[in-house]
């Protein structure tokens, strides 16, 4: 009991210190701003932000696998979709509570991450990319041509979790929790091992790390969070169909993580918000919107290799320091 209290105190202490740093205050400020969105009462804005938050979790899970464990997957939509389907199916056909269904969906995502992860263990680079892509394509085709779980039309008419503002806070808490857990994992000993494997697998192997196990653990964690994102996606839209397995979603994750900045976890949030909000803002331009979107995408990727989060934050920090010094 004593020990726990001390731990809590030291944790709170660490939190206070972190909160006073530049990054800490920016993060808390953004989070505070985010949580105020529903207060504006704007349903449309809230809907977009909910979608962006779901994509944040998804992109972060991809960043976890690719950025930290070095396993670049082109088939992340498989985890996203599997969980979306099973969450929807358990809510619709079994009638369990949505939160139970969400974790069941996440569980299925873990199983599938093993199904994909084990055969792909030997693969690297483009081979791994195509291997994972092939898996997601097969699952997509199976659901598209099959008649199980609703066939082409999928499952629809799921009960809503509540009005959009309730959904907002549910998704927000899932996002914050998922990101903190993922960040904590990569900062822990496990994260260090994963980075070691990413940087030099042979070397890691030689120093007695069981690379196979750790790579699979990375796949499972990443798959689980992608699954949570997929489940939330289905619950938010109240419908799911084979389109969730499309390569499109895999690339959503990759692009969002890259725009925000890879190997950061938090960058995914920036990427997802930029991506979603930008594509909504361009909506009135009709056919030109995606063209402009593509152009902006090319410019960001071309000129901001580290993503936009870190460089922008560094600039801001410089300004911040300048102000504080005076």
């Amino acid at each position: 009991m004593m020990g726990l209290q001390v731990d809590m105190q030291s944790l709170i202490g660490r939190f206070m210190v972190w909160a006073k740093t530049f990054r800490g205050s920016i993060t808390l400020l953004s989070l505070f701003g985010l949580l105020l969105v529903p207060v504006t009462g704007n349903v449309y804005l809230s809907t977009i932000i909910v979608t962006a938050m779901i994509y944040s979790i998804f992109a972060a899970s991809w960043d976890f696998l690719a950025g930290f464990a070095g396993q670049v997957s082109f088939g992340h939509a498989a985890f996203f979709g599997i969980s979306a389907y099973f969450t929807a199916a358990f809510v619709e056909f079994v009638g369990v509570h949505w939160i139970v269904a969400l974790f069941i969906g996440g569980g299925y995502a873990i199983i599938f991450s093993l199904l994909i992860g084990i055969p792909c263990l030997r693969l690297k680079g483009p081979y791994l990319a195509l291997g994972t892509l092939a898996f997601s394509l097969i699952i997509w085709n199976l659901f598209l041509t099959g008649t199980w779980l609703g066939g082409t039309e999928g499952i629809s008419g799921l009960p809503r979790l509540g009005n959009i503002f309730v959904v907002f806070y549910i998704v927000a808490s899932f996002m914050v929790a998922s990101l903190i857990i993922m960040r904590a994992i990569v900062d822990s000993r496990l994260g260090t091992i994963l980075k070691a494997i990413r940087d030099d697998e042979t070397c890691a192997d030689a120093s007695g790390i069981n690379t196979t196990t750790y790579k699979l653990i990375a796949f499972m964690i990443s798959g689980f969070f992608a699954g949570i994102a997929g489940g939330l996606f289905a619950l938010h839209l109240t419908a799911v169909n084979p389109a969730v397995y499309q390569t499109l979603y895999s690339f959503y994750a990759i692009i969002m993580a890259a725009i925000g900045g890879m190997v950061t976890i938090y960058g995914s949030v920036i990427g997802a918000f930029l991506f979603t909000v930008l594509s909504e803002l361009l909506r009135p331009l009709a056919a030109a919107s995606l063209l402009i979107f593509a152009t902006i995408l090319i410019l960001i990727i071309r000129f901001a290799e580290e993503g936009v989060m870190n460089p922008v934050l560094e600039r801001l920090q410089d300004v911040w320091d300048l102000i504080r010094r005076r």
Binding site: V72, A129, I254, I255, A258, M262, L290, I298, I301
Partner: peptide, 14 residues
Amino acid sequence: HIGIVLITFALAFF
């Protein structure tokens, strides 16, 4: 590697 993947993807999309 990832930069190339992203830029060529964006290009194809463009």
